[in-house]
């Protein structure tokens, strides 16, 4: 037996066992912040008095292939945010979360149960397919 003191704790080899929905929550937050920021920048730029010279510079900036990854990230964020958002709307209206029941050990929660996971995977799969399609389009433009 021994006792030692440390000011900082080292990273222990313990599993991170939080559920998938929690990670989806953080992804939803991150994509949401990104999209809102994008929206404000978009409104700000289009709120400027645009003359021919400014329009030409905007066209040049967005026509530059280095901007394509940005657009791709934007589309990806929309797809993931939209798919997960749709799941949240459905579950918050009481769909796919089950009903109250007598809890039996080991108490699997019905709100994050099979039905909810299936709808999550379906929506995220659709989003990923659309992202792949979008990636193909961007690669086509780059070529």
């Amino acid at each position: 037996m021994s006792i030692t003191e440390t000011k900082k704790h080292a990273v222990a080899s313990y599993p991170k066992r939080y559920n998938l929905e929690r990670y989806m929550f953080f992804i939803q937050r991150a994509t949401g912040i990104f999209l809102v920021s994008y929206f404000y920048i978009h409104i700000f730029i289009y709120n400027q008095r645009i003359d021919a010279a400014l329009w030409a510079s905007i066209k040049t900036a967005f026509g530059n292939p280095t901007m394509y990854p940005m657009s791709f990230i934007f589309v990806t964020a929309i797809m993931i945010h939209g798919a997960n958002g749709l799941r949240l709307i459905l579950t918050q209206l009481g769909f796919f979360i089950g009903k109250p029941k007598l809890p039996v050990y080991p108490y699997p929660p019905s709100s994050i149960g099979k039905a909810e996971r299936v709808i999550l995977f379906i929506l995220i799969s659709v989003a990923i397919i659309l992202i792949i399609v979008a990636l193909g389009e961007f690669l086509f433009f780059i070529r």
């Binding site: 918050q92 009481g94 109250p100 994050i112």
Partner: peptide, 29 residues
């Protein structure tokens, strides 16, 4: 509540608070 679902995962009695909150939202709507 943004339905992260962790509350239901850690509940030691199987109460499933996330389910109750979503049902509350449904009831209010």
């Amino acid at each position: 509540c943004h339905f992260a679902g962790s509350c239901s995962q850690v509940c030691p009695r199987g109460v499933d608070p996330a389910l109750a909150i979503q049902l509350l939202k449904k009831s209010i709507t």
